[in-house]
Design a protein around this nucleic acid. Structure first.
Lengths: 200, 200
DNA sequence: GTCTATACAACGATAGAC
DNA sequence: GTCTATCGTTGTATAGAC
């Protein structure tokens, strides 16, 4: 018995890379950036820990390659694009909540844990929000589109924060309709409503 | 001059504890929980690293003892208590923004970095929001006071997140009046306005 | 009780052998 | 391309000096 894990040596690099990426996504999601260890990821991928450095330049690089949004970007983009202006907020909110609730907020909490520390995660989040919603708002021709996008992002991420990270009741267990009535209305105002800025 | 660094041994335990607490606050604020090291904190306090274990039971315990809100709780409590109901949101928002902006958001970002990972930080934040605003709302006799509090918290923390952690423009550089007009109005609705829940 | 000194296992990372 | 050996650093535990 030479090796209970692997016999000789591994054939190709693509397998190793893919296995590491997949394991990294799982472990980073469960433990966050600092909580995850290179050794854990490598062992789950059945690969030598040194491969992380070899293929991704280190833990940081592996994280940047593995990090992904806690929603399907294309699904959101389609929802945003195909909804009549006055329904965008409600539809997007329902989509986010159903996805986040399904994973017990694990995906969102993981991204949040990392966004606070890792610039790569913060950048991903910034750019997703800016492009997805910014494009649609410019199409609609509303005033202050960029400000609206960030206001929208602030309320949406704040909801995720209180509901999935802080887990503060009763918002943590509120049903979707309650959230749509309260927060959905806010989001819709940020997108297409009167901001109260006087000008324009 | 008896001790520029430290000659023989330290006089009392209270000095050591206080020095560690003070150094811990600084280092945790700058680096977050995971970024800070026990050795760095101890060296800044001019104390042996083992004292962290002796006095606080470990890094975790030191953090729990050192963590504090990124605002003066008493100042907020007074603002909340002395404002007429329809002005609470604006006044509180102005207070938070001025304090956070003064420290370049360092205090908020630090708490956020830790709140995502450390249960003790999350708890601190939860309880501060719940007691400070919950008490006042019950006084005012509005419906769904607890839900209102968490809605309020979600928008306020979301603002902090986008403005100080993600640093997304134009919200990151928006002036106070813009924030009051846009987000202040949301906060006020969450506190005393119509939530749109139908009942009552 | 208060503190110093030292030891330890686990971490991220690297150099170089195969 | 892959892996072993090893480095410096981390959090923590322990022994013992005063």
């Amino acid at each position: 018995m030479t090796h209970p894990k692997r016999r000789g040596r591994r054939p190709a690099g693509e397998d190793t890379k893919a296995a590491l990426l997949s394991a990294a996504r799982a472990v980073f999601t469960e433990q966050g950036f600092d909580g995850a260890t290179v050794r854990t990821i490598a062992s789950r991928a059945e690969v030598d820990p040194a491969m992380v450095n070899h293929w991704f330049g280190g833990k940081q690089g592996l994280f940047a390659a593995a990090i992904q949004l806690p929603v399907d970007p294309e699904q959101i983009r389609m929802t945003v694009h195909n909804s009549p202006p006055e329904e965008i907020a409600e539809r997007v909110l329902r989509t986010f909540i159903s996805v986040w609730d399904d994973s017990s907020g694990g995906g969102f909490a993981a991204l949040m844990r990392s966004a606070a520390t890792q610039e790569s995660a913060a950048k991903l989040l910034r750019e997703f929000i800016a492009t997805t919603f910014g494009t649609r708002l410019r199409e609609l021709g509303v005033d202050h589109p960029d400000l609206r996008v960030t206001l929208f992002g602030s309320q949406l991420s704040g909801l995720g924060l209180v509901r999935y990270v802080l887990r503060q009741e009763p918002l943590a267990s509120a049903d979707v309709d309650t959230l749509v009535a309260t927060i959905g209305r806010t989001l819709q105002r940020y997108l297409t409503g009167d901001l109260g800025l006087g000008g324009e």
